[in-house]
């Protein structure tokens, strides 16, 4: 099983997101993350879907996506040269001595501090998903109160 990043350009209609998600649910494909947002063209949206599966499954996923009338273009970025980012907001326990360590880690990961209260620090990090995984792992011992990840967005380089 391999993790694949698929970029899907879709019509900016209501109901398109449901078409995509119900396709995945109905055929039993596993979505790891899905993001959707506007593009340079107001009539289209871009979805970045991260999906696990072996080659045959991923081929079917791409073909099934292409079959939807509201899907304009499907690009599998997995084997291409592409840039990807994910945004993390994480609220960590930080009292007394641990405060400094948390701030240091945030600095190393180019994070910005978006909120500080007497007991918690909230950090924002934008990075590749693997780096975000590493950051979360580092903060785990301090006590993670809450966190939210956007899921991966991606663009091909060329």
């Amino acid at each position: 099983m391999k993790t694949n990043t698929i970029s899907v350009l879709v019509e900016n209609h209501f109901g398109v997101l449901t078409r995509i998600t119900s396709l995945f649910a109905g055929r039993g494909y596993n979505i790891q993350s899905l993001t959707v947002g506007p593009t340079e063209d107001a009539s289209a949206s871009r979805m970045t879907i991260v999906v696990d599966g072996d080659t045959e499954i991923i081929d079917q996923v791409k073909k099934q996506l292409n079959k939807l009338i509201d899907v304009i273009k499907v690009v599998d970025l997995t084997n291409e040269d592409f840039i990807d980012r994910e945004l993390l907001l994480i609220k960590v326990s930080a009292k007394g001595k641990t405060r400094f360590s948390v701030l240091q880690f945030a600095q190393v990961f180019d994070g910005s501090i978006v909120d500080i209260t007497p007991n918690f620090i909230t950090i924002e990090v934008s990075a590749r998903s693997s780096k975000i995984d590493a950051f979360i792992a580092l903060l785990e011992p301090f006590g993670i109160k809450e966190m939210a990840r956007t899921g991966r967005i991606a663009l091909a380089r060329s």
Partner: peptide
């Protein structure tokens, strides 16, 4: 009905 028939139509419109 668009929601209900989404997986059993080639396409549908409201």
């Amino acid at each position: 009905i668009c929601g209900i028939t989404r997986p059993i139509t080639k396409h549908n419109y409201l």
